[in-house]
């Protein structure tokens, strides 16, 4: 069994706010193997974006990594020097973001921005012509037509989908082994979304590139990912191969999430909503974070935070009743 490409162990992140600290990431365990596409799913406040930002240490100043290790190819990322970290970013590990138009610099052309990144990551010094050629090649890879003209354009002249392709091109310029994709399709139209998902999948497969795909959209995760991790209230609560997670979720939250999902199907049903809301930092319950909303809660759930239980075949679930929940998702309690 090969070492995982990315290994996050017991990651804890704290938020500094008005002289008080609160834990927003409370012990995340996550692995991504070489060439694997892993989905990181959760609702807002679950900590999924922060987990991804922690990898490249892009957290805003009010958030600090307080514990844990993040290993990439054996390298402990939290111990890197500033220079080494800079080399890693956009190099072996690249990141794309949600709402691409906000993530491109509005006062420079797309070509200037792409070429800056290409030059930054090339091993030898390239001539202007070589850099330009590489930029055009990247644009072709992400299927942007008329690349020369597009390179001279400014971000505001692009649609959301095109801008995301530009970001992907920039991310690919350093030939990354791991791509962190933070909700790359959330701000896009559904037809454009489908194209971008397809593009990501093809590129990942062609290059043998691993992807950590952060999303709240389970449908997109199904289509793109080999494996899925579900996050709730700053922790991973379940991880499994995609089809296994969908067919046989072992954590009550995952189950409830799947049941709450409206489907484009003929049957109209009362959507099983989850009562209450995800706890905020201030009112985190004792023990299992989900038990206050859980249909299967027992008094024991309050005693301690459950460990991730091995269900077999790499399927883990953070619930003391995992493996013993009724699988008939029509009737919850």
């Amino acid at each position: 069994m090969e070492e995982p490409l990315l290994s996050i162990q017991n990651l804890r992140v704290q938020l500094q706010q008005n002289h008080s600290t609160a834990e927003v990431i409370r012990g995340v365990e996550l692995e991504v193997n070489k060439g694997e596409i892993v989905g990181l799913v959760g609702e807002s406040g679950s900590g999924k974006t922060m987990t991804a930002l922690s990898v490249l240490q892009l957290l805003p100043p009010s958030l600090q990594i307080s514990a844990g290790t993040i290993k990439f190819n054996g390298l402990d990322l939290l111990k890197l020097s500033r220079k080494e970290l800079q080399g890693l970013r956009g190099g072996s590990v690249a990141m794309i973001f949600q709402d691409p138009l906000r993530h491109l610099n509005p006062v420079f052309t797309v070509g200037q921005q792409l070429e800056a990144v290409i030059s930054a990551h090339s091993a030898e010094k390239l001539t202007k012509k070589q850099v330009r050629e590489k930029a055009i090649e990247l644009f072709n890879q992400v299927k942007i037509n008329d690349p020369e003209r597009r390179l001279r354009s400014y971000p505001h002249q692009f649609s959301g989908g095109m801008a995301q392709r530009v970001m992907i091109a920039m991310a690919l310029s350093g030939s990354p082994k791991l791509l962190l994709a933070d909700e790359p399709t959330a701000a896009l139209d559904v037809t454009v979304q489908a194209e971008i998902l397809r593009l990501l999948k093809n590129i990942a497969r062609e290059r043998g590139m691993a992807v950590l795909f952060i999303s709240h959209n389970l449908g997109a995760v199904w289509q793109l990912c080999d494996r899925v991790c579900v996050m709730y209230a700053g922790q991973v609560v379940e991880t499994a191969a995609t089809h296994k997670l969908i067919e046989q979720p072992e954590h009550p939250y995952t189950q409830a999430l799947l049941e709450a999902l409206p489907r484009l199907e003929l049957k109209r049903k009362e959507l099983a909503s989850i009562p209450g809301t995800m706890p905020g930092l201030a009112d985190m319950p004792e023990g299992c974070a989900f038990h206050t909303r859980c249909a299967y809660a027992l008094p024991e759930c309050r005693l301690a935070i459950p460990e991730l239980l091995e269900m077999g075949g790499g399927h883990l679930a953070r619930c003391i009743r995992a493996g013993n929940l009724p699988q008939n998702t029509e009737s919850a309690a």
């Binding site: 037509n145 649609s159 037809t191 489908a194 397809r198 449908g219 199904w222 289509q223 799947l258 999902l261």
Partner: peptide, 23 residues
């Protein structure tokens, strides 16, 4: 039809789409 097919759904495979004309 294109719209309906593009909706990512659990259980549905990625639609086979060529790069469409951008808006």
């Amino acid at each position: 039809r294109t719209l309906r097919d593009a909706v990512p759904e659990v259980g549905k495979l990625l639609p086979l789409m060529q790069a469409q004309e951008e808006a």
